[in-house]
Computed example of a mutant assay.
Amino acid sequence: MIETGKIQILKINRITAIGAFLYDGNDEKNVVLLPEKEVPRNLRPGDDIEVFIYRDSKDRLISTTRRPKILLGEIGTLKVADITKVGAFMEWGLEKDLLLPYNEQTTKIAKGRDYLVNLYLDKSDRLCVTMKIYPLLKVDSPHKIGEWVEGYVYQINPELGAFVAVENMYHGLILMKDTNTDIFCGEKVYARISEVRNDGKLVLTPNKKSYKEIPKDAILILTKINENQGLLPYNDKTSPQIIMKELNMSKSSFKRAVGKLLKEKKIRITERGIEKNGR
């Protein structure tokens, strides 16, 4: 059986000018095309090959030897490639971008930003993604109070706080009192577990003991400055999105690290941005 959205090992039925036709080893009438440019030269009819199954731009079932960034049922972060009347389209490593329908979005999204999504099949057997991942997360995390974990913010509730998918698998929540004003959906956070609730969900605290993150962030900023000939063109007015994209840290972490470097007189702030002292 050929299954959409999954990586499968299929058998070569025949090879033509447009590519190889694959089947599951049983039903030779049910075949899927592997385009000619992806067919290894040494393959022959009867050989096995590992491929991913999806639909092309004309909604035809097709296979590829490339592995996408996310498989059916998985949760992962994808970048918004475009926003249209039917929804957003997200990059996932294949020629045809994935649709994120408007009714599957939990917040207003922006082109070029990353968001946490789940890959699913719609009623028409087409692969799409959704931001509604809350029901898919687990509560049986092996982590204990005091441990530090990583995760992505996937929804923000002004009354409760920021919902985090810890390791893209477990329920996590940063309470509103502990959130930063610049926190956003799609942001990667590194937080300490302050409570494991009776229902198994994790309460996270990224702000407490945050000084432990400063040395690593400060080293990263200095490295970037050196790589850019002693200048980093960012300051307090730089958007959190740019900071996250270029440095993989939140705006608040960036400010703490810059403050430490200023105190140690390793950098100075100018109209151009952050410059290394001694240039």
Rank of each mutant, 00 (worst) to 15 (best):
I2W: 04
E3N: 09
G5Q: 04
G5N: 01
I7G: 06
I7T: 14
I9V: 14
L10E: 06
L10D: 06
L10K: 08
K11G: 01
I12Y: 09
A20C: 09
G25P: 06
G25L: 05
D27C: 07
E28D: 15
E28F: 08
N30T: 09
V31G: 00
L33K: 00
L33Y: 08
L33D: 06
P35Q: 05
K37S: 13
E38D: 11
N42S: 10
L43K: 12
R44W: 02
G46T: 09
F52G: 01
I53P: 00
Y54Q: 08
R55D: 00
R55H: 13
R55Y: 07
D59N: 15
L61H: 02
I62V: 15
S63T: 14
S63W: 04
R67C: 10
I70Q: 05
L71M: 12
L71R: 10
L72E: 06
G73Q: 10
I75E: 09
A81I: 09
D82C: 07
G87V: 10
W92K: 03
K96L: 02
D97N: 15
L98W: 05
P101N: 09
T106V: 14
G112E: 00
R113I: 07
D114I: 03
L119E: 05
Y120A: 06
L127Q: 01
C128H: 03
V129N: 04
P135M: 03
L136D: 10
K138P: 04
D140Q: 12
S141V: 02
S141G: 14
H143C: 07
V149F: 05
G151R: 02
G151D: 03
Y152N: 12
Y152L: 06
Y154R: 01
I156S: 09
N157A: 08
P158N: 11
E159S: 12
A162K: 04
A162F: 00
F163Q: 06
V166C: 07
V166A: 00
M169P: 01
L175F: 03
E187H: 04
K188W: 05
V189H: 01
A191W: 03
I193D: 03
E195D: 15
E195V: 14
D199E: 06
G200S: 13
K201C: 04
S210F: 08
Y211M: 11
P215G: 08
K216R: 13
L220F: 09
L222T: 01
K224Q: 11
N226C: 15
N228D: 11
Q229I: 10
Q229Y: 15
G230C: 00
P233L: 12
K237V: 14
K237A: 15
P240S: 08
I243G: 08
M244I: 02
M244Y: 07
K245R: 13
M249F: 05
S252C: 05
S252D: 11
F254M: 01
A257S: 12
A257F: 02
A257D: 00
A257T: 06
K260F: 15
L261G: 03
L262M: 05
L262C: 04
E264W: 12
K266G: 03
R268E: 14
E271V: 10
E271P: 01
R272Q: 15
R272G: 01
R272V: 08
I274R: 07
